[in-house]
């Protein structure tokens, strides 16, 4: 199977603050150099806490942010200048906030037509035919086309967002928290729709979410991001059931679950790392119960184990799985 998406050494740093005469700029390394492949037809889930670089990564993948280093290969072709208009035909983005991703002053038809006209230069009749086809696929009625975004509920607006992404005919969709603004009963509708569309159009998904249960339910593989780096990646079925990186374990224990008594899974005194002053060695070492001196000196690299998992940790859990 070919790779839909191949990232090599991709990273992003932002310059922050003001420079006082001659002093060097400070940088926030939002995404550390990162290698990742997504196979065609796969759903790769990405989880991690806010500020860990999920959105930055996603924006680089669609060309909305130029990477600081590294390369993005989409369906075998390297895209090196960040130009959303070139990326747009191959990879599209579904936004977290369905309402604010639709221009309040445009009708749904105008919104749907933009990618057809700009990216595919379709004529009027072709556009109308394509829109009908897509609207049928996402279960939206065509009478919605002449209405304005504020007339829709969150779930409907998110369907429209998905329909717009499909209109570009991209085969890869970046879904950045696509259901976190939606109600649970509607969230399930949208997730099921995404699953159906994937089947129907042979799509590849990069599904970003902070909700572990949702990610587990939709993904084939899951990558756990911490502080701009992948710390663990593996099959969705196993990664939370049997985490090997201490941070993945912490995430899994923190997920609220009926019947489990409340307990703070980590010591309340622990401080979260400061992006302007990142910890030396493993970024997780200040929060990690298994940290050793080595963890405070060296940064662990992502290495594979027997179960098809990759972990960036010197002392992973469940050592039996080691190669």
């Amino acid at each position: 199977m070919t790779d839909a998406l191949k990232l090599t050494g991709l990273s992003k740093s932002f310059r922050v603050g003001k420079r006082s005469f001659g002093a060097p700029w400070s940088y926030v390394h939002a995404v550390q150099p990162l290698d990742l492949t997504v196979k065609t037809g796969e759903t790769l889930g990405i989880v991690g806490e806010s500020g860990c670089g999920k959105s930055t990564l996603a924006k680089m993948l669609v060309g909305l942010l130029p990477p600081s280093t590294g390369e993005i290969e989409i369906e075998g072709a390297v895209l090196d200048n960040a130009d959303p208009a070139i990326f747009g035909k191959r990879i599209q983005y579904v936004f977290q906030d369905p309402i604010s991703s639709l221009n309040p002053r445009k009708t749904i038809r105008q919104i749907m037509e933009a990618p057809l006209r700009r990216l595919h230069r379709l004529g009027k009749a072709e556009r109308a035919a394509r829109i009908s086809e897509i609207f049928a696929a996402v279960n939206l009625r065509e009478e919605f086309l002449d209405r304005y975004p504020h007339e829709f509920s969150g779930g409907q607006a998110q369907r429209i967002g998905i329909a717009r992404a499909l209109a570009a005919r991209a085969r890869i969709l970046i879904l950045d928290e696509p259901v976190s603004a939606l109600d649970v009963s509607v969230q399930a509708q949208v997730l099921n729709l995404l699953a159906d569309l994937k089947q129907e159009f042979g799509l590849t998904y990069l599904f970003i979410s902070h909700d572990l249960a949702v990610v587990e339910a939709v993904s084939d593989r899951v990558a756990v991001l911490y502080f701009g780096a992948v710390v663990e990646i593996g099959p969705a079925r196993e990664i939370f059931a049997n985490p090997r990186h201490p941070y993945t374990a912490l995430l899994a224990q923190s997920a609220p679950e009926v019947g489990r008594p409340i307990s703070a899974p980590e010591n309340a005194g622990v401080e979260l790392p400061d992006p302007l002053d990142p910890p030396k060695g493993c970024a997780f070492n200040e929060r990690c119960a298994f940290a050793t001196d080595r963890c405070r000196r060296e940064r662990p690299a992502l290495t594979g184990d027997r179960g098809g998992r990759e972990i960036a940790c010197f002392n992973p859990l469940d050592p039996a799985a080691e190669v």
Binding site: S153, V184, S185, Q189, A195, A213, E216, A217, F240, E257
Partner: peptide
Amino acid sequence: CVPTLGGGQRKLAAIPGL
């Protein structure tokens, strides 16, 4: 409708309508 951790990849129940 609410997925819980440990259920694996699956189709979720949904409530139709709004």
